[in-house]
Nucleic acid binder design. Structure first.
Lengths: 163, 163
DNA sequence: TATGCAAATGTTATAATGTTGCAAATTTTC
DNA sequence: GAAAATTTGCAACATTATAACATTTGCATA
């Protein structure tokens, strides 16, 4: 799966997931971190689509799996995955999405479609630079940046015009 | 209060609040919207500092006021204030801060100090333009943009070096 | 292969945040 | 002053997240 995958377009999503899991295994190995079965399963669930998933959605699927998990299990797995850059939390939705730029440390920019719910993660150096400049102008030292753009993806723009 | 107020520096905050309330009254009049006592009180509370306040913090102060309010009262007031551009919600903190650029419709950029908790709202056209370009490159139609930068304000950078 | 430590997980309970739905009161409009 | 629309009160509930502590597991090393 290319880093610039476009969730709005049809693609072989099984391959998408498989690649994400393979990447995750490699990254965890490099980090000397343990991608345990629970963590891997949570990552897999998060990746089941390009729509962000809530912690309790994950929890519900784990329950279907027969895994009698409680909230802390899921939150801990998500924390781990976030720390290793494998998933992102979408603050404006209280939910989580697989990172499509895994490995590189980054604060992505997220385009969130309010029509279909899909999220596209971008790396936008121009945006990062502009934010950095704005902070610097205030002598502010940025550590973590959240950029989430809600709107309509190409397909949903078209659908809306059909209404 | 100037639009470029810097919460990190000492300023006459009473004047800050008074101006915000006066602005709010003017704006609501222009919008034909009713700034009822509850709404005005909530706005005043949100403005008590430049640190964002949670809905339940507001609720607690209302209770001290003797106002026996329930959560929906606060959330409704906050919704109203947001709709008229008088407060902003900080998604990464689940809390609310007074808008220092009231009147102009906008998506601000927020510099959130993890040391002191103060939030500075900026209008950064270069950032807005860069985000807009990035979205356009994906044929994405932006409607609402959240930009929240967590880090250290000038004063807290200095304090940290003293540690 | 024992054993002991650190990391990970399980478990229970609870905190924090946000919403729904409906009835009562208030304000506006005619 | 009566009808309509807006706002508020209120109770219940839904969702999201964390605290605290017990238990198990993986793994290095004696």
């Amino acid at each position: 799966m290319a880093a610039s995958a476009i969730p709005y377009r049809p693609h072989n999503h099984d391959a998408c997931v498989a690649q994400a899991l393979a990447d995750a295994r490699a990254i965890c190995q490099r980090h000397n971190a343990r991608l345990t079965p629970t963590r891997e399963r949570v990552l897999e669930l998060i990746w089941q689509s390009h729509k962000p998933l809530g912690a309790y959605d994950v929890l519900a699927v784990l329950a279907e799996d027969g895994h009698n998990a409680a909230p802390p299990t899921v939150y801990r797995a998500l924390d781990f995955l976030q720390q290793h850059g494998l998933v992102h939390r979408i603050a404006s939705l209280n939910s989580f999405v697989g990172c499509t730029h895994a490995g590189k440390s980054h604060n992505g920019l997220f385009l969130i479609c309010r029509g279909c719910g899909n999220v596209l993660e971008l790396t936008a150096p121009a945006v990062a630079q502009a934010v950095s400049d704005a902070a610097q102008a205030q002598t502010f030292e940025p550590e973590d940046t959240v950029i989430e753009v809600a709107g309509l993806c190409p397909r949903c723009q078209a659908d809306h015009r059909d209404d």
